[in-house]
Nucleic acid binder design. Structure first.
Lengths: 174, 174
DNA sequence: TACTACGTTTAGTAAATACTAAACGTTCAT
DNA sequence: ATGAACGTTTAGTATTTACTAAACGTAGTA
């Protein structure tokens, strides 16, 4: 591999690390994805260790998260005990996968607690100005969450969220 | 204020704190927003201190971030040195505001670094199989980022991203 | 002028998170 | 069976982030 290619890869990896951190993920996660994304062939765990400088343990746990999000895929070869990982190169597929994963997450638990607040108020109603105000506000938030939820569900259901769909959306929003 | 209303507010605040953390923000930020969101009247900094249990300093810095995102608004009253804060109740407006804010963020810097990688490769081209592969991958990522960027720009430009627009999008995606 | 009621900044602390090093269990080869 | 090459788990550490307490600057008030 040429010297400049090594440098290119390093820069790119650093860029993705920052993006990863921006979205609240460990920067190592971005680095792992970057290394896999730029590799023409699937890599073993130890190869990722070599490329990223992280330890096996860290990679083991973080790559599981990446796999759960559908950003990397694990595969194994016959007669080879190593696991191999490769990056998902279709980002639209990845988005759908991430949204799907999100459904089971802590986020939805919190959203359901808002729903719960609403139900608790209805079950034990108090006729009071402030009570009314609070109820309306909580209800508005819940409706907003519902809209978002429907949107993500629609996206997840698409067989393919491709370029064409994005442009379709863009045209509607014009 | 009735005892049960206090409890309702506390539960709700806790829920928003978790949602805040999920999105990578301090949980205090969610708590501050929740308190303002459920308050019929704008609150002063010291009132927020009382409601959240956080200190002035923390609230001062975090509320500035909230204001930058357009999630709260600061106002002042004549003959009153206190600042008053109220929550933005229109979440669609808030989303647009957040996306706008994002433009100047660390995220865009990182994205531009991907663009930079691409340009560096073009400026110093090497005819090589792996070089080609890497170039195509980086290019694909950059195109993806562009699509996202256009999407957010379109949303920001809408005079109002309301419920109706969301349903419009939903119908296109069907 | 000094005093008070503010919001902000700063310096230090507590808490959460990412990561390392090493022990562990499993599978396959000898 | 023993050992080597794996991925995983765990316990501890380093780093980052959120937060507190207190000093500070400013503007209005007496």
């Amino acid at each position: 591999m040429s010297a400049s290619l090594t440098r290119i890869k390093k820069d790119f990896t650093q860029g993705l690390s920052q993006i990863s951190r921006f979205w609240g993920f460990p920067k190592g996660m971005g680095a792992i994805f970057a290394v896999l994304y730029l590799s023409p062939t699937p890599l073993s765990l130890n190869e990722i260790v070599r490329e990223t400088g992280l330890t096996k343990g860290a990679i083991s746990t973080e790559i599981r998260a990446l796999a759960r999000m559908g950003l990397v895929h694990r595969s194994s070869r016959l007669g080879d005990r190593k696991d191999y990982y490769e990056a998902e190169a279709d980002f639209y597929a990845a988005i759908r996968s991430i949204l799907k994963e999100r459904q089971n997450s802590e986020f939805d638990r919190a959203i359901r607690s808002v729903q719960g607040t609403l139900e608790a108020m209805e079950a034990n109603w108090v006729e009071d100005e402030e009570w009314n105000f609070v109820y309306e506000r909580v209800q508005a938030l819940q409706e907003f969450f519902d809209a978002i939820d429907n949107l993500t569900k629609a996206v997840v259901k698409l067989e393919k969220l491709g370029f064409s769909n994005v442009t379709k959306i863009l045209s509607v929003l014009k």
